[in-house]
Every structure is written in structure tokens, then in C-alpha cells.
Nucleic acid binder design. Structure first.
Length: 770
RNA sequence: UGGGCCGUGGUGUAACUGGCAACACGUUGGGUUCUGGCCCCAAAGAGUCUAGGUUCGAUCCCUAGCGGCCCAGCCA
């Protein structure tokens, strides 16, 4: 059964918007999104969120999503990048079908629209230098100034633009600019550059073009031309939205009702992870990692090589959610998603890192025991199993034997006993040390009655491999590449390169059970009690290389364990200059000092006994003041009107000027309320209707049936509410006082504005405490 | 010294039209166990950035303040 629009709308604010548009028939009910990477690098975890959101929303609403390469800057882009990106998207599990497109597909259309813009006088060719343009643009606090080319004739601009396209000028000689507003507070609207000259070879269009569109001009047109309806990007593009809308409207590329709409969401940031193309490139170029697909890299290629299943990434992203708050997710949530996915499906096998030789004293030198079959995954027998080989010489993990065990240690200790998983219980008889005092060999005896690991009593369990059939493997154990949860802004002030973990990759020799050699490649598996692993492409026959995707959670807490992270000194507190917004209060004060009539009004309101805050707000401009006077005139209650205006009307997002003709009705409403004819909530309902449709308050009240409830009727309603919620009632009687509000709410809802709150409260109290 | 966006447990996201501040991760304790994993049970942890206001009732509406992020590329 498909999920309803309502359910979809509850998932996040973007789906709420799309659901609303679908249900109101906007765009004819179509939903078209796009994931628009620039093919100049590798996709990373941050992109994964965009993919999940863009493709996910299209899928949920039965729409489509384009994979569109935003290839508007030929100097940095390549087909190789584009192909890798497409492969990464597919790997994540999203099917773009035949909807792989390129911005360069529509270069011609964009060019023609630019000519139209020039003809309409909305764009011009500016021959200022880059520096001059910067100078003339002004700053965030000073407006820009027009340059000498801004008002040149359209025909001249058009001719120049055509010459630009024809290759008549060198790079940087001139640009095409939109003519918008040089004094706009939004810097992007100060005559943005639309086209620049770039004599460069483009990986798709070759040398067809020597002018290329800028992002702000190109992106919205690509969207519009593809029929995109909802164009989702990250928060920092918020300022660009005005320009996005301007270009679409100015070029008339599509009729207004088909204009795509841009929405912004927070980008995904995760502790210990940097997602910045520049920084990642730096890590690769300077040799801090072994390449873009190094398993320590947050690139999709790296995560894939590490063995992280794409479904886990998707689950992680869905768990994080979508909002507009800049945030940083804990690394543990990512880890949880990975373990959660792998736990249900990864085959278990046995292997030991840093092997320690074990000789079974009471076992024949040539005696071999085939154990099993042991299921690959106890929870899923359909996966089948394999047999294990037991012999005189074994290996266990060095960490599973302790000469001086910490309290609570459940593995092998001198004289102690432990279970070899699916094998036998063994007892420590003795051990040999090497020159450095390190254990080099263990002597044990088996308890033959415990074959198959069935010991009949509880004891610690460890994994093991039999020496003859053991498969050697190189284990690559990974840890955080960067040591700070906020590598780009570490409190210590250190640069992220100084935060690189020297132990982010540790290689260990390991031994695996024989069946490991025949495991399908690319198969994620768990080495029991150790972690999840996946074979690395570096593997050769007979020389297995395994990446540890993630260790298992370790519930064992050693008592002597100290906090591992050194507390980094907090230095260099940013001497941050504080920028204050121009307060609205200041503007009102200014208005009053410039206009004596407003000042007089404020005095008048104060004299009438208004709250000073209200008097201030209401005397800031004439429109509001006029409305106040009109309402007060209609009902004869100035303070009441003031309160009503500040608290009811301002909350409903209406313009004072638009309300002037309704002032008499509003006054009448206040009168009804004052006389007790209408209850507070009833008045509120009338107000809603009044604002939406107009009309006379008394008539509306009558139509809505808002006559006040009689005492008896109210009592009956309250009793009915109590009867309807026996569970809550008993909880309340047991002392959950907050349920008073719940019952009050139910009563108010049931009476739909016909009950006076104080009265209802009194009745409720009475019935609750007889 | 302009404009825009955003402030809810340690973290991330919810909370219908103003009506029991919820879910997940994490943490702690316990249980179970042939993986110190998984699973099960329980607990602690925010009164919603602050201060006022409206209201029977405010995370939600109003006012003021505080804090964070983005914008002055011929990058996207």
C-alpha cells in the first residue's frame, strides 16, 4: 500500500512542501527533482545526503529525479569524474535510468536566453576589469556604483556578446552582467556576472564555446529546461534564491506557474569527518592517504572500499533527518547504522589477529577432527554453513590470553579454562616466553567431552584457527583519520592537517579459518568478536588483504581505563566582532523623532493607560496607528483594541492597511467579546472567518453556533470528556498534574468555542475534586 | 556595522489548528548468551537561547535582547 501524502508530509519539511504542492495540483501534480554535482571531483558523504533526499523525494511521490552534471566550468571538469560520480550514485542504490544529463546539453538554449535578456535591457556587456568590477560592487554595508558600461545601448551589448561567443576577445576582457540593482542589500543582486570568457577545452562540447555561463545563471535555467519542480540545495544558497527566481522570470524560460522553486536544507556534517573537496584533494595530493578511494576517506569510493554497505549509508542519512539547522552528527550514529545493517546479514567466521601458537598436549599429532557443519549465521540458516578443522596445533588471538588479567577478564588465564567456539573447552597447562618476556607458545589440554563447544556450563568463548588449514591474511585496521570531532574548527586552533591520526591505519598479520578462502569476493563478513571485514582489491590469490570496516562494540570496560583523549587546550578564542541587526525598536524611535504626530500618538496611548511596550509598537507607523484608532472608535475601548491588535492581529500575518475597511467589524467583535456574548475562543474563531471572508461578527457567531453554553450543558460536556478518557483520568488521579491541561484541551476542543475558559476550568476542577 | 537563515536532553530529529515535550543514537545499571556482539528490561538526562507579554493553557502567537551560520569568485 502506498504511503499517503499526509504520512509523507510528516517525515520532513521538504516532503511537507512537496506533499502540499501535489495535493494542490501545482505543476499538474508532477514532482521532478535533480541531483546536480559538478564533475570536478569525487562524491563524498555529504553528497550522499543530497542523493538520498533528491532521489528519495522523487521516488516517494512517484516523480523522477535527474542526475545532472553541472559542467559549466571546463577548466576543472572531466568525463572521468562524471563517470565515477554516476557509478557512485548507482552504488548507493539509485537508478537514474536514462535521466543522466549535462548542463552543456542546453548551452545553446541558455545562450539564446541571454541574448533575449540583452534585448530586454536586463543584461549588458561590461568591459571593466575584474578589479574594477570588485571596486564598483561596494561592500555589505556600502552600495555599489554603476560602471561606464551599464547603460550602453542594448544593440551594442548584443554585438559585443556575439563577438564574445565568436572568440574575438581574450579571457577576462569582458563579461555579461545582469542589470538588477547595484544597491541591493543582497550582494548577489548587484548586477551578477552571467557569462565569462574562458578559452578552454570542454570535455563534452570541445571547442564549440569560449564563453561559459556562471552558476547562478545556468543552474536555474537547467532546472527550468528539464522541468524540475523542486530544486533542493544547501543552506548557503539561501542568498542565491532571489537571483534564481530573477533569472527564470527575466528570461521567461518557462511560464511563472511552471517555474521551479529552490529550497534549502542543512548539509550533512559528521564528527571527525571533513567534507570539503579542497581538503580532501589536499589529503590525496600531499600523500596523507593512498588515494581518493583510500578506506579512510569519506568519499563514496573510500567508504565502498572500506566495506560499508550503501544501505547502511542510506539508513544513516534517513535517521539524521532533514532540517534547516546547521548541525554535526555524532560519529556513533554512523557506526550504529553500519553495524545494524551488517549484524543481520554478515556471515560469521573465525580468525585471529596477532596469532599466538597453542599446542594441545592431549591430542594426537596426526589426529584431525572435522567439526560442524557450523552455520554461517545462526540467525539465518538459509545461508548454510561450513565445517571446521581441529588439530594438535592451533592459533588464538594474542589478546585472548593474559598473564595478569584485569578484573572481570573472561578469556584464557594461567591455569584457567576457556571455550574455543564450536570446538572444545581447553585448559591452560603452561606457556613459554621468548627473549623479551613475551609469550610465544601456550600448552593446553582439551576436554573431549565438550566437542562442538557444548561445555554444559558457562565460560568465556574465544575464536581459534587450526594451524595446518589456516589462511594467512593482512588485516588493515582503521581508525579516525582526523583526531578532532570538528577538524575544520578545532578548539586548539590547529589546522586540520595537524590533526591527522598517525595510527589511522595499522596493518596486522592474521589467520583465518579455511573457508575464508572460498568466500565470495566483495562479501562483508564478521570475524567473530573482532569486527566486520571486507576483502580489499589489493588482495591476491594466497595473499588476502582485508579491510576492517568497523570493529564490534566492546562492552568490556577495564577498570584502569583512563580517558584516552588528551584534553586539548582551548586557545585563541576568536575575537569576533559583534554585528548587531538594526533593531526594529530603533527604527520606530527614529520614525517618532522625525514625525511629531507619531510622537504625540505615543504620549496619547501612554496616557490612555497602555502598556509601554504596546504603546511603542503601535506608534511606530501611521498605518498601524490608523487601524488602532479605527477599531477603538468602533468599540470605544482603546486599551482593549491595542491588546487585540498587538497580540491577535499581528500573529496572523496581515497588513494593517488591508484591514482598514474591516475596522468597524473588528470593533464590533471586541464589543461582543467585552459584553460576554462571545467567549474568548469563540471570538478567535469569528476572527478567523472575518479575516478570510469578511462579514458581520454577530452574524458569523450565529452561523457558527457560538452561543455560550449554559451551566448545565457545560457540565455535561466536561463529564463526557472525563468519561471518554478513563486512562488519563486515573493517571491524573494518581498525581499526574500535567493531565489537567490535557483535559482542559479536550473540553475546549469539544465545546468548539462555546465555553468560557474560566468557567470550564472551574467546572473541571469541581468534577475532578468532588 | 547592511541583508538573509537558524536556536528543543550529550548528539540528531519530532511534537496536529496553542492542549501529556516524543523517537533514535549515546550514557548508566540489570538480564540473556557457544561472539564482552546481537537481543531483552530499566534508569538518568531538556522544560524548549534569555527576559517580558497575550492566554484557562505557549516549543508554537507578540515584543525586546543574546548566540551561531551564510553573502563583497569572471567557483559551484
Amino acid at each position: 500500500m502506498p504511503v499517503s501524502l499526509d504520512d509523507l508530509a510528516k517525515r520532513d519539511f521538504l516532503r511537507a512542501i512537496v506533499a502540499r504542492d501535489v495535493s494542490t495540483g501545482r505543476y499538474g501534480g508532477r514532482v521532478v527533482t535533480r541531483f546536480p554535482p559538478e564533475p570536478n571531483g569525487y562524491l563524498h558523504l555529504g553528497h550522499a545526503k543530497a542523493i538520498v533526499v533528491d532521489f528519495g523525494i522523487a521516488r516517494d511521490f512517484g516523480g523522477i529525479c535527474y542526475l545532472r552534471m553541472d559542467d559549466t566550468n571546463p577548466t576543472t571538469e572531466s568525463m572521468e569524474f562524471a563517470e565515477n560520480i554516476a557509478a557512485d550514485v548507482r552504488w548507493l542504490g539509485f537508478d537514474y535510468g536514462d535521466r543522466l544529463t549535462f548542463a552543456s546539453d542546453v548551452f545553446e538554449a541558455m545562450y539564446r536566453l541571454a541574448e533575449r535578456l540583452i534585448e530586454k535591457g536586463l543584461a549588458y556587456v561590461d568591459e571593466c576589469s575584474e578589479d574594477e568590477i570588485r571596486q564598483l560592487r561596494g561592500t555589505v554595508t556600502e552600495p555599489g556604483r554603476p560602471g561606464p558600461w551599464r547603460d550602453r545601448p542594448a544593440a551594442e551589448s548584443l554585438e559585443r556578446f556575439r563577438q564574445m561567443r565568436a572568440g574575438a576577445f581574450p579571457n577576462g576582457a569582458m563579461v555579461l552582467r545582469g542589470r538588477i540593482d547595484l544597491s541591493a542589500t543582497n550582494m548577489l543582486l548587484r548586477d551578477p556576472i552571467l557569462y565569462r570568457i574562458k578559452h578552454a577545452h570542454h570535455f563534452r562540447t570541445g571547442d564549440d564555446w569560449c564563453i561559459y555561463p556562471m552558476y547562478d545563471y545556468a543552474h536555474c535555467l537547467e532546472d527550468a529546461l528539464e522541468g524540475v519542480t523542486h530544486s533542493i540545495c544547501t543552506l548557503e544558497f539561501d542568498n542565491n534564491r532571489a537571483l534564481y527566481d530573477w533569472v527564470i522570470q527575466a528570461t521567461e524560460v518557462v511560464p511563472p506557474e511552471l517555474a521551479p522553486q529552490q529550497y534549502e536544507m542543512a548539509r550533512l556534517e559528521v564528527e571527525y569527518i571533513v567534507t570539503s573537496k579542497r581538503r580532501l584533494k589536499q589529503l590525496v595530493d600531499e600523500g596523507h592517504v593512498r588515494g581518493w578511494d583510500d578506506p579512510r576517506m569519506p568519499t563514496l569510493a573510500g567508504l565502498r572500499r572500506r566495506g560499508i554497505p550503501p544501505q547502511a549509508l542510506v539508513a544513516f542519512i534517513e535517521r539524521v533527518g532533514i532540517a534547516k539547522t546547521n548541525s554535526r552528527v555524532e560519529y556513533s550514529l554512523l557506526e550504529h547504522a553500519i553495524r545494524d545493517h551488517l549484524n543481520l546479514r554478515a556471515r560469521r567466521l573465525m580468525g585471529v589477529a596477532d596469532p599466538l601458537r597453542v599446542v594441545v598436549e592431549n591430542w594426537g599429532a596426526d589426529e584431525v577432527d572435522e567439526l560442524g557443519p557450523v552455520p554461517w549465521l545462526a540467525e539465518d540458516p538459509s545461508l548454510g554453513g561450513r565445517s571446521l578443522r581441529f588439530g594438535k596445533e592451533l592459533f588464538i588471538a594474542r589478546e585472548d590470553f593474559e598473564l595478569s588479567p584485569p578484573p572481570g577478564f573472561k578469556r584464557l588465564v594461567p591455569g584457567g579454562e576457556v571455550r574455543l567456539l564450536h570446538g572444545y573447552a581447553i585448559r591452560h597447562l603452561g606457556h613459554e616466553l621468548d627473549g623479551q618476556g613475551r609469550v610465544r607458545l601456550l600448552r593446553v589440554e582439551v576436554d573431549r567431552s565438550t566437542r562442538g563447544g557444548d561445555t554444559g556450563r558457562r565460560m568465556g568463548s574465544i575464536q581459534w584457527v587450526e594451524a595446518q588449514g589456516a589462511v594467512p591474511a593482512t588485516l588493515r585496521l582503521y581508525d579516525q583519520l582526523l583526531l578532532s570531532p570538528t577538524p575544520m574548527a578545532d578548539p586548539s586552533g590547529r589546522d586540520f592537517l595537524d590533526l591527522i591520526n598517525p595510527d589511522s591505519l595499522v596493518e596486522q598479520a592474521g589467520l583465518l579459518e579455511p573457508a575464508a578462502a572460498s568466500l565470495p569476493v566483495g562479501q562483508a563478513f564478521q570475524v567473530m568478536r573482532t569486527g566486520y571485514f571486507a576483502a580489499d582489491p589489493d588482495s591476491r590469490p594466497g595473499a588476502l588483504v582485508l579491510n576492517r570496516t568497523i570493529p564490534l562494540k566492546d562492552g568490556f570496560v577495564r577498570k584502569e581505563e583512563a580517558p584516552p583523549v588528551d584534553p586539548v587546550a582551548v586557545v585563541g578564542e576568536d575575537e569576533r566582532r559583534k554585528r548587531k541587526k538594526r533593531p526594529a525598536a530603533e527604527l520606530r524611535a527614529e520614525a517618532r523623532s522625525a514625525d511629531p504626530r507619531l510622537a504625540a500618538a505615543q504620549d496619547e496611548l501612554l496616557a490612555a493607560g497602555l502598556d509601554p511596550a504596546e504603546a511603542d509598537v503601535l506608534s511606530g507607523d501611521h498605518e498601524q496607528l490608523a487601524l488602532l484608532r479605527a477599531i477603538a472608535a468602533a468599540c470605544g475601548d482603546l486599551p482593549g483594541s491595542a491588546r487585540f491588535l498587538t497580540n491577535e492581529l499581528r500573529g496572523r500575518d496581515v497588513q494593517p492597511a488591508a484591514l482598514m475597511d474591516k475596522a468597524p467589524s473588528l470593533g464590533a467583535l471586541l464589543t461582543l467579546r467585552g459584553a460576554g456574548t462571545l467567549t474568548g475562543p469563540g471570538a478567535s474563531r469569528v476572527l478567523d472567518v472575518l479575516l478570510a471572508e469578511g462579514g458581520q461578527p454577530a452574524e458569523i457567531a450565529q452561523r457558527l453556533g457560538l452561543s455560550s453554553l449554559s451551566d448545565g450543558a457545560l457540565r455535561a460536556e466536561v463529564q463526557a470528556v472525563l468519561d471518554r478518557h478513563p486512562d488519563e483520568l486515573s493517571r491524573l488521579r494518581q498525581g499526574e498534574q500535567k493531565l489537567r491541561g490535557f483535559f482542559m484541551g479536550q473540553v475546549m476542543k469539544a465545546t468548539r468555542g462555546r465555553a468560557e475558559p474560566q468557567l470550564a476550568q472551574a467546572v473541571l476542577d469541581e468534577l475532578l475534586n468532588p
